[in-house]
Design a protein around this nucleic acid. Sequence first.
RNA 1: GCUGCUGUAGCGUAGGGGUAGCGCAACGCCUUGGUAAGGCGUAGGUCGUGAGUUCGAUUCUCACCAGCAGCACCA
Length: 647
Amino acid sequence: MSAQPANEIRITLPDGSVRTTTRGATGADIAAAIGPGLAKAALAVKIDGEMKDLDLPIEKDAKLEIITRKSDEALDLIRHDTAHLLAQAVQALYPGTQVTIGPNIEDGFFYDFARNEPFTPDDLPKIEAKMKELVRADLPTKRTVWERDKAVKHFLELGETYKAEIIRDLPADEEVRVYYHGDWHDLCRGPHLASTGKIGTAFKLTKISGAYWRGDAKNAQLQRIYGTAWRDEKELAAYLQRLEEAEKRDHRKIGREMHLFHIQDEAVGQVFWHPKGYTLFRTLENYIRRKIKRADYVEVKTPLLLDRTLWERSGHWAKYRENMFIAEVEHEKKTLAVKPMNCPGHVQIFNQGLKSYRELPIRMAEFGACHRYEPSGALHGIMRVRGFTMDDAHIFMRPDQMIDEAIAASRLIFETYKELGFDNVQVKLATRPENRIGSDEIWDQSEAHLAEACKRMNCPYTLSPGDGAFYGPKLEFTLFDAIGRGWQCGTVQIDFNLPERFEAEYVAEDGSRQRPAMLHRAVLGSMERFIGVLIEHYAGKFPLWLAPVQAVVATIVNDADGYAKEAAAALKLAGLRVETDLRNEKINYKVREHSLAKAPYLLVVGRKEAEARTLSVRKLGTDKQETVALDALAKQLLAEATPPDMV
RNA sequence: GCUGCUGUAGCGUAGGGGUAGCGCAACGCCUUGGUAAGGCGUAGGUCGUGAGUUCGAUUCUCACCAGCAGCACCA
């Protein structure tokens, strides 16, 4: 390699080409050297993979990429700058407001403020207007590096106690950077766009909420303003449209419209399942029932109310009482608690009679109605409730069977999700929390077992440190719905607490008494929540086997009533869920109504059909019609309505 | 639980110190119409609950309950 003059550096561009430039040149200089168009479009640079300001002098050879509005990274830059813009606007409009942090989040950003007066929704348009004003002013950005103590002192003098705290907590080797946007300044790691004008105006403030300082409920509550920001107005409009789409899928709305369930004040957080909703519930339940039967589970039912002493023994009274519904029984001076979990009940069944190692594993399943006192703010439709049904099971086994059982349970979960229409599933391994029981040795072993199970299944997973249950580590299964939202549903947990506390035993091969290992697993998790997910995933347009009403026979004229009833009866006899609509309404009206009600098949009969013993079939989502003979139709629909596990 | 907002007929909404309208749904009559809203009419509300202010409260104030959006929580 030839010697390089001391004042020159070599810049490698993404296409592999190398440019030689003066030491201390900036990203902006290099962009300008490449072309005026690029210079204008440049937002920031990536130097050796790290995002930097356009005006940062480059002192040594580097790989460099010019970031423009088109780059993937552009959104992050725009959003971060918009967050600053928000803070600047807020401080201009509401003097005395302290700034804290303002990170990017999915689709946008937020900024947390400390202010005595609350923000109201009316403030958002005012703040937005101010932000746009600042964009028009095109204030230049200036990066400055401060000496730490001076920075702390400076922000304290401004009354910015949170900022001062952040600076104090910065790692000792980190530069304290303060960015100016015009006169306004903020502590920030950067990078930033060259001026406020570069941000554009494709942003919108979306909501206000309370948020705890550093995410801890023990700390002061700040006021958070959320916003979204995009490259251009078109992207912003598309995003807002996406939000609208999600709103249309809301299970609370669809649940009401499709007469699936309701919730009322006298039973907060509990679901009244209507006939149609409960049809869905039972269909799903029976599907799971078939699957676990095949997987050699046994099904049980255990009491809802159990005496306090049992919960004391299980450890729930000490660790979980806050979340339990307690019933004082006056007549007997007893305290009972409604079960928040099924596990203690299942151990009671296991403990009836002496078990041999030959009987293990025992896979004990229950569709168990559990009740937990969830914080009022956590309740959400049927997704987060206080009374719910778990598709629960506990597997009692020899310790050496644990990995195989964890694999079998995980496979059941994957298979079920796939059959239900969810192809993308992610797995997390949640490891030991701070507050836990059991020796480190047991935890080491249990975590290793779950990791080994994943490895043998060839299943990638991410670690979720500290998120395990107090009694053992767990695998968490998150599925992704039609619009990309993740839902944590299934779980496989190792429990070394309960067998110990209830002194569960089996007789081993050598005649000794041994403690069984226990695996706790749920596939759907909560039936209620899972049905909520299904509603939103399918937007109420369920696959035929799940649809509460599978077909509606609608008449055109009253003369066809008799045949319509006959046809509906025949389809019902074949095993389909069918309704008739004989009302004195025009067919257009009926088509519209049943389409909106999301009936998968509309079977229209008029004089012609009655005569020929056929039905005019119209499938939901199409406007095509097909005339099919009654017998053939029954077969066709029945085939389509076959549950995925019976295909 | 915390912050903010909201609560009017089954659903969606208007209004506002003088006891409430509209649309859809419901019900009745007319219409029997061939694939996304036929016509006319009727009924339905102690305006979330309780207190206070007032001659008078659904409207204003307070408390409570519930819902919504976040935050925290989700063993």
